[in-house]
Each structure stands twice: as C-alpha cells, then as structure tokens.
Simulated assay, not measured.
Amino acid sequence: MIWKKCKLLFRKKMGEDELHNPLCEWIEAKKTVARFTPWTDEQIALEGREVTKNEQRYVIPISFKDFPDCQKVEMDGQKLDITGKIDLSPRWTLIQVKTYKGVAPHGNCQY
C-alpha cells in the first residue's frame, strides 16, 4: 500500500478588498495520510464516465465523526477540491476529489 502525506484544509475569511470581495486563506485543519482508491466497474457504471474521469477517491484513516470540516486536500503540492465524503466507519473516511489535469487550482473564497 502506498500512502501519501496530505493536509486537510478549510477556508477562512480574513477580510475584504476595496470592492468588498472576501479575502480568504487556506488553513490546515489536520495532517494525515491518504491512499488512492481506484473506481470499480460497478461505480463507473453508476457514476458515469465523466465523473470517474474527472474525480478520484482517497481513503483516509480518520473516522467519519472525527473528520474535520474542510473543503480541500493538499497532496504533492496541489490543492484539490473535496466533492464528497463517504462514511466507512468505524475507522475510515473516503473522500472524492476533483482532479485538475496539468493545471494547479487556485484557492478563491467563493462560497
């Protein structure tokens, strides 16, 4: 099993600019590890190719009830949007993240 180091991040509003747009920072909620989980044939059939092509799943050794309220995960220097969380109680949480092919996503403060 290959585990990757990762950081779970949440968005914190730090103020506003002169046009009253929110200024935000990504704050680390927790450091942990994650393991890539490939899509099964059944999941591909249910979710469709567009979802499985543009999203990945990672299992994280944190129970669902203890999983922090976060919107992004940072792995390999790239911040990925968390699009879903699945309870694999009692010991795991599975996160689904949006992948970005060759483009590092930027963190804005849109809610």
Rank of each mutant, 00 (worst) to 15 (best):
Q78I: 15
I82Y: 08
C24H: 05
C6Q: 00
Q43F: 01
T32I: 02
V59D: 13
L19W: 08
P105Q: 07
W39V: 00
R49A: 05
W26F: 11
E55V: 06
R57H: 09
V33H: 00
T52R: 07
K30V: 03
C70Q: 04
W39R: 01
D66F: 11
G15D: 12
I95S: 02
Y111R: 11
Q71A: 13
V59T: 15
L94G: 01
V103S: 09
N21D: 08
K31V: 09
G48E: 06
I44F: 01
K53G: 07
D17F: 02
G48C: 08
F67A: 03
I27V: 14
V51W: 11
E50S: 14
L88G: 04
Y58A: 07
G15E: 12
W26D: 11
D81G: 02
C6L: 06
L94H: 01
I44G: 00
W3N: 07
A34V: 15
T83C: 11
C6S: 02
M1T: 15
D66S: 15
I27A: 09
N21E: 07
M75K: 05
V103Y: 11
R49D: 05
C109L: 06
R91G: 03
F36M: 12
D17N: 15
D76C: 02
I2Y: 11
T93I: 03
W26C: 08
G15S: 12
S63K: 05
S63V: 01
Q96A: 11
Q71F: 12
C24V: 15
K79L: 05
F67I: 04
I27Q: 13
K4H: 11
A34C: 15
P68M: 04
Q110D: 07
R35A: 08
E25V: 09
C24G: 13
I60K: 04
R49Y: 04
N108P: 01
K30M: 07
M1D: 13
T93Y: 01
K85V: 09
M14N: 08
C109W: 03
K4V: 09
P90L: 02
F36R: 15
E42K: 15
P61K: 12
C109F: 05
H20P: 00
P105D: 05
K13Y: 04
K4E: 10
L8C: 00
R11Y: 06
V103F: 12
A45T: 10
G48P: 05
L46C: 10
E47I: 03
L19K: 13
W26V: 10
T99Y: 06
L9S: 01
K85L: 13
V73G: 00
H106I: 07
T40Y: 03
N21Q: 10
V103D: 08
